[in-house]
Each structure stands twice: as structure tokens, then as C-alpha cells.
Amino acid sequence: MTDTVRLNDEIKNSGLKKGWIAAELSLSSYGFRRKINNENQFKAGEIKELCRLLKITSRKKKDEIFFVDNVD
């Protein structure tokens, strides 16, 4: 599962707009929102590109955001 709070914080801190990020991932804004909210899962390539866009280089940080067992 994706840690929605942490991912939203990363996006906010990056200064990038969600609509722009969605387009870069070849997703609609609606589809991107569904993935952020764990209604659908991110594909491996989307995670890789999202990390590049958000400048997430730490594997630990990536795992904490995208591969959480349980999110409150």
C-alpha cells in the first residue's frame, strides 16, 4: 500500500502540481488520485518515474512510501 500522507507531503514539498505529475505518468488526474488513495496500485514503472520526479533517491524512503504493509 501507499502511505498517502507521506506521498502527498512529498508532492507538496516538491512544488509540482498533481495534474502535471499525472500527465508525466500518462495518467488522468482521476487515475492518479485513485492510486494515491490506494483505490488502485501504482505500477513499478510509475513508482520509478514518480521517485525521479519527486527526487526520492533513498530506497528506504521509497519503501516507506510505496510498500507499506498497513496505513492508518
Rank of each mutant, 00 (worst) to 15 (best):
M1W: 07
D3F: 08
D3R: 10
T4H: 05
V5T: 15
V5K: 15
V5H: 14
R6Y: 09
L7D: 01
L7Q: 07
N8S: 10
E10F: 06
I11L: 00
N13T: 11
N13L: 11
S14K: 03
S14H: 01
G15Y: 03
G15T: 00
L16M: 14
K17N: 15
K17I: 01
K17V: 01
G19I: 05
W20N: 02
W20R: 11
W20V: 10
W20K: 09
I21M: 04
A23Y: 09
A23T: 12
L25G: 05
L25W: 03
S26C: 08
L27P: 05
L27Y: 00
L27W: 05
L27C: 10
L27H: 02
S28V: 05
S28R: 03
S28E: 10
S28L: 09
S29Q: 13
S29L: 09
S29Y: 12
S29W: 07
Y30E: 13
G31Y: 06
R33P: 06
R33Y: 13
R34V: 04
K35W: 01
I36R: 01
I36F: 00
N38P: 04
N38M: 08
N38E: 08
N40W: 10
Q41F: 12
Q41A: 12
Q41L: 13
Q41R: 15
F42A: 01
K43I: 10
A44K: 12
G45E: 14
G45P: 07
G45L: 12
E46W: 07
E46I: 08
K48G: 00
E49F: 09
E49T: 15
E49K: 14
L50Q: 02
L50K: 00
L50F: 01
L50N: 01
L50M: 04
C51E: 03
R52L: 10
R52D: 11
L53G: 02
L54R: 01
L54H: 03
L54M: 05
K55S: 04
K55W: 06
K55F: 00
K55A: 07
T57C: 04
T57V: 09
S58R: 06
K60A: 12
K60R: 12
K61C: 07
D63R: 08
E64K: 12
E64V: 10
E64C: 05
E64D: 15
I65D: 06
F66I: 01
F66H: 05
F67G: 03
F67D: 13
D69I: 14
D69H: 14
V71H: 01
V71S: 09
